[in-house]
Write a protein that binds this DNA or RNA. Sequence first.
DNA 1: ATAAACAAAAATGTATACAAAATAATGAAA
DNA 2: TTTCATTATTTTGTATACATTTTTGTTTAT
Lengths: 211, 211
Amino acid sequence: MTQYDKNSRFASKQAYEVIRDRILNGDMPGGTKIVEEKLAAELGFSRTPIRESLRQLNYEGLIVNKKVVQPTEKDLRNLFQVRSLLEGFSAKAAATYLPEEDLNALSNCIKVGREGTIEEIMDANERFHEIIVQASGNALMIDTIHRMKSIIYLFRKTVVLYNRPRLIDEHEEIYEAIKARDGETAKQLMEDHLNKDLDFCLQILNSTKNA
Amino acid sequence: MTQYDKNSRFASKQAYEVIRDRILNGDMPGGTKIVEEKLAAELGFSRTPIRESLRQLNYEGLIVNKKVVQPTEKDLRNLFQVRSLLEGFSAKAAATYLPEEDLNALSNCIKVGREGTIEEIMDANERFHEIIVQASGNALMIDTIHRMKSIIYLFRKTVVLYNRPRLIDEHEEIYEAIKARDGETAKQLMEDHLNKDLDFCLQILNSTKNA
DNA sequence: ATAAACAAAAATGTATACAAAATAATGAAA
DNA sequence: TTTCATTATTTTGTATACATTTTTGTTTAT
């Protein structure tokens, strides 16, 4: 399923992907100083495409002030606040007119979420939210959420690895509300779901802080 | 009040400002093809800073696919949908804890809105919304709205120039709700306000389309 | 020892050059 | 004329060089 991204023939795109992954993997932990020339030498490109990739990473919030981001608790709250608004709306929209096909896809995400490997569960989680976001039918909204994707990923990892209880149950409840065409409930459940995610993240963040 | 922006010493920043203004003024109307070398020659910079400025303009949605954006009705609806969610939330937040000082500033915007010149009215309008957005206390949300600012401007111009009725009255109602610390009403009024803006824009858009 | 001032080094912003890719233009065949 | 293929031409993506600016490190004076 790893489709060939035609953009990958661009050095800038490749650099973006490598650096992004390094940040998400923890190979370049929060606070790491970003030096164009150093990265250029390391990745074997010139500074020009590196600079372009850094712009994108800045845009996504993974790099701030020439340093790898170190999201604070406040950042996390802000992020979930915006998500809550946009994904809550999307859930309501999904309840109004999500096609049968997508409903099945949602259902499948839940199934994988219960039975899959860690890797599969993470993918299924992401897909679940993605389908609902797409249902908003609003390109700007979709784009705005995508912009937050990398940082969301940074946290989603935590949530899944630490095995948050009721995660999939909540997805299922949302799914049921959408299927029942109950927009208000879907929205409310999505907001609650994200709030619980936030709380769980904060809890883990604070308990591992002094480790 | 025109403070010196220290970034303006950068060619990339200057280029950004010039090109953005050209687009907003209509000097580069929707659909205009963007050619790096042409702009570089025109503005007297090399391509490098031009490219950087174009990335920013892409990010803000003023340039799409190497062409100056031509927002469709759908784009306009999408934009106002997102604004409605974010600014509605912000209005509620403002009602909860907007300091006296900002309340006065809001009040002043309304006053200018009734008595000022076109130029002043446009500024006051922008400021009114800006104060409320800031009240969200959410840097990500603020940034997201700012990202839409240029396109919003493109339309706000229409609204003010065509003198939309009740515009300032609605601002005043929102102000009153915030002052009364009535968050739900403030939110509802803001959403209604933006919806009316949207309708007005659409009306003008459609009536001037075949002119 | 601390702070201020300076020199050295590193890093960034910009200009330019060139190769690859995309687009436009030309001409031959249907 | 239309359609396709093949050249030209333009435009973009990348590499490299250089000049400021920023940062770092060292020295000097308090």
